[in-house]
Design a protein around this nucleic acid. Structure first.
Lengths: 206, 206, 206, 206
DNA sequence: AATGAATGAGATTTCATTCAT
DNA sequence: GATGAATGAAATCTCATTCAT
């Protein structure tokens, strides 16, 4: 066995590159992250990036794609036949889970969403970015057809409110120390309030 | 006439640089925007950037600061003694105005907010970035103290919901074609719905 | 005035790059000539190549094109209404002139001709390479129609014989020391003999 | 059958490397041919090149030497006591044979001859490259001493004419499509004419 | 005999920045 | 104010080569 780490501690070279790339891309963006940054953090040599990923652009795309398929899988597991209340419950809990276990993963997706032109283009981009929004939109639609919602509720706005406020909250928490912010918010607290706000405003009063 | 420019043409070099820099920083981020990009779009020569702005970092900082003072001025004009309903009314209308007249200005601030580490740091940064949020937080606080809000409403979450959903909506609209999105949302429509949602959920029922 | 050279000795940076590039491309080929080779010989810095020529490929293409237009001009000056004898006279003298004044120029064209796939492709390639051959072919044709040639003479073969043997001779002389060759041939001697051979074999006996 | 290859498959790895190396060196030159190019075409792995040939330079040298011994053998079979007419007959037919059966072999030698500095140097180089020329020179000399030639014929020029025009013709035919040339020449046609030209011009009239 | 993984050195290219005029 | 020319430093990427198995 090479090196001094135990097997269980030893990430493969590819994984080491992959994970550090995500972290750096999430923090500094695609362009200001250099291959040298990545390999230094990963403790590997430069050509390894090219060996495993082809080039910088493909490294980035691979990161996004793998994260995406991971996310997608989790979001797709939310059942379709649950009530809107339950949906929001699960949706927000899922976001909270992903964020606390690995904020970088979430932040990279967000970063990408907010500055698409900074990044390499690839065909599946649109699908990846709009997926979480579409999931909410569909859930609102189903709720509507089941008569759960108040009249005149626009599914797109609801989606933007839920998604946008989650994303903003994650960002603010993630960058809290950077901004020297003293906003006493936690994912947990946020989730409680957003749920209350949503339910109060859009569910049909019985 | 020789040797003398009209007023409207004066400082055109500086302005060209400034405006195109904002546009490019907003679209591609700080790092992937090169001085060459800027001067090409602006139709001036490279040393002019250094003559007027010192260097790339200062160019960026100057852009942010000037935008900020512009924004600040407008947001500061919102009166303190109005009802929360009126505040939201004015706040959202202001956002809509800025976005439609010059989306890049707004987008640059947003972009910066989401990836602070990608950009140069400077002392006033934190203040600038968190200002719009703080304005909402204070408005909620005042509303609370005036007894306008339902019990248990958390001012931070409300701020994040309002701000986050505005930001997300602006981003989605701005990047609509890029994402090939068919979400039929307009700032106007969004504003109507977010206001209704907010008021239904957080204002005290009389 | 910068540096210590007198004006008349001072080649511009662009010329310095250009001339040394030709020399090196001619000697070592496109691929094994590095930009560093060029700039070291030229006594300039690397970015200057990109400033004046864009990139390595364009540097090469520019070299070929400029040489070509130079050659073309000279070859086009050969009159059309002269006898075949005179044509060969002028054609060979021209080759001799170019070769002795600047063998690299000729050799680069030859090098290119012999290994087209090693080089960047560009549209005018075909025209450039085949031009000198076509000039001979046309001259043979004109001679034929004027009844100067013996029956059954194939213009393509004549062109290949004249052109091929000139090219080979130039190459052998240019690489003489490299190959440690003791072939006592000079352009002058070669020209005399090739002319005699051609005239003896293809001109119509009176 | 397991573990045992048929004879025809034995050494296939070495052969694959060897043959594809020749093809690529002939087409793209030494420098722009990469080991990866070779192993990809050959369908083997990189270390195999080092196992069988040591390194790139030795791979190239081995290619040249093996080709050379092949050529040498064939050219050495041309008898010394035949007439010059017969010599040219056999010499040109041999060139035609080699070219049609495996043009790359011929082209690699030619390519090398034209740009020696692009290739690795090795002791036997000079001998190898100048061999075919020397064979003609000697033949002309023998013809002279047998009184077959007209007066004043220079053996070097004759060698250069025969060799140079053969080489040029082979090159033009090989690269015809690349150059988009419409020169209707074939090895066969060329051989007929070059022989006629040579004999008409340098053989002693009886 | 064969391979996947790894590497040091070096190639091309770009970028922010400055100098001389 | 303005410019063409120039530069040092660094980024991306490739290549021949080797190691461990």
């Amino acid at each position: 066995m090479r090196g001094s780490k135990k097997w269980s501690e030893m990430d493969s070279v590819r994984d080491e590159i992959f994970n550090n790339a995500i972290r750096l891309f999430a923090k500094k963006g695609y362009f200001s992250t250099t291959i040298r940054d990545v390999v230094e953090k990963a403790g590997v040599t430069q050509p390894m990036v090219y060996y495993y990923f082809g080039n910088k652009e493909e490294l980035f795309i691979t990161c996004i794609k793998e994260l995406y398929s991971d996310f997608r899988h989790k979001y797709d597991e939310i059942e379709k036949d649950i009530s809107f209340k339950e949906f929001v419950e699960k949706y927000t809990r899922l976001g909270e889970e992903i964020f606390s276990s690995n904020p970088e993963k979430l932040l990279l997706m967000i970063h990408f969403l907010y500055s698409p032109e900074e990044y390499p283009k690839f065909p599946e981009l649109s699908e990846i970015i709009t997926r979480p929004l579409k999931i909410i939109i569909e859930a609102v639609r189903r709720a509507k057809s089941r008569g759960e919602l108040a009249k005149g509720v626009d599914e797109y706005t609801v989606a933007l409110v839920l998604f946008g406020s989650m994303v903003m909250t994650a960002t603010i928490i993630y960058n809290a120390e950077y901004f020297d912010l003293k906003i006493p918010i936690t994912p947990d607290k946020f989730n409680k309030t957003i749920k209350k706000m949503l339910f109060d405003s859009i569910l049909r009063k019985k």
